[in-house]
Design a protein around this nucleic acid. Structure first.
Length: 340
DNA sequence: CATTCGTGGTA
DNA sequence: TTACCAAGAAT
């Protein structure tokens, strides 16, 4: 393959059609980095409002480094993969204290930071500093495996590393534009289903198009079935118009607030002991909710119970919205708005 | 290396 | 409804 003319075809297409995304309006490495953290496993359309809110509220690296982790988690609420913001917060604090608030423009230094892996490393170093490093995401894997009829399993790290090294043998000096062009091609033309090969700017270089095997790529081994979990969720109200909440520290959704959540075979007496509360007798659940995660499913029965007790776990109903809560718990909380 | 981490959208 | 996917990283 003539990579020189491939690069020219790809880049001239990109300069003509590229979308005007918010993070393309800046050269600030901090902002580009933040956008890449938000974009992992998350669609552009979902990220845009979060990115704009963050930049509005935290315009500089120092401003986000100085914010509390709980406020950041609240801003991240609904975006998912909450460890991303925890790691990013740690990383920017490290940049502030050890790098004079300047994002390292050295790949190996940058990769030492929390939450910075091969993709974000390549993306930020190429886009912000124009270093010649590949940024290999799901789009790029799809484009490359189709271009070269690569049968390897793209869920394996070895395959990703190999493709990254291959790209770095031919990518041009316009590294940031090249990486974004590859991703843009995957996102808008070389799409997972019904790719637009007819209008593809690099169709003439594509082995799978030539052999009519595009739909065989990329190959990925099938994911395991999701495990199912059955819980009772308790909305515990006292006579101060307060509801019981706790901050998760061990399980899924760390740092987020949850209503008491127990396996369905846990007795109400057992729960009273664990929470040190005296609860009203249990009636029928007021609702059921299903929440699907990447790798598990929660089935939740929602109960309302009352108590005369008060302690630090009780939050006024008017303040619950100020705390970070996952979408699963928001589904539960809506029963308070609707039925109480 | 395989598994674990959210959420919303689509066919 | 079910399965897969989206600018992946930590463990």
């Amino acid at each position: 393959m003539n990579y020189k003319s491939f690069n020219e075809s790809l880049l001239s297409w990109y300069y003509e059609v590229r979308r005007d995304l918010p993070w393309r309006q800046t050269n600030d490495p901090y902002k580009i980095w933040l956008s890449e953290v938000m974009l992992q496993q998350t669609q552009v359309k979902t990220v845009i409002p979060y990115y704009n809110r963050f930049i509005d509220k935290y315009p500089t690296l120092d401003s986000i480094a100085d914010e509390s982790s709980e406020n950041l988690l609240k801003e991240w609420e609904g975006l998912g993969y909450y460890n991303r913001i925890r790691n990013f917060h740690e990383a920017v604090k490290e940049v502030k204290s050890s790098y004079h608030s300047k994002v390292p423009d050295n790949l190996n230094e940058f990769l030492k930071l929390k939450g910075v892996g091969p993709y974000i490393g390549g993306a930020v170093q190429s886009i912000a500093f124009n270093h010649r490093v590949a940024a290999v995401d799901g789009n790029v894997l799809r484009v490359m495996t189709r271009l070269t009829e690569d049968d390897r399993d793209i869920s394996k790290q070895k395959t990703i590393t190999s493709i990254k090294e291959h790209i770095e043998t031919f990518m041009p000096i316009f590294a940031g534009d090249f990486n974004q062009a590859m991703m843009e091609l995957g996102a808008t033309v070389c799409t997972p289903r019904i790719p637009k090969c007819v209008t593809c700017p690099v169709q003439s270089y594509c082995e799978s198009f030539k052999n009519n095997t595009v739909n065989q790529y990329p190959f990925k081994k099938k994911s395991k079935a999701k495990k199912e979990y059955y819980y009772n969720i308790y909305l515990i109200l006292n006579d101060n118009n307060e509801v019981y909440l706790y901050k998760e520290t061990d399980d899924l959704l760390q740092g987020m607030y949850k209503f008491p959540k127990y396996d369905i075979d846990t007795s109400i007496e057992n729960i009273e002991d664990k929470l040190n509360l005296t609860l009203s007798s249990l009636t029928e659940p007021i609702g059921e909710e299903k929440h699907v995660f990447t790798h598990k499913v929660w089935y939740m029965n929602i109960y309302v119970v009352y108590t005369k007790d008060k302690n630090d776990h009780f939050v006024p109903l008017s303040n619950v919205r100020d705390l970070p809560m996952s979408v699963a718990m928001q589904k539960v909380y809506k029963y308070i708005d609707e039925t109480i």
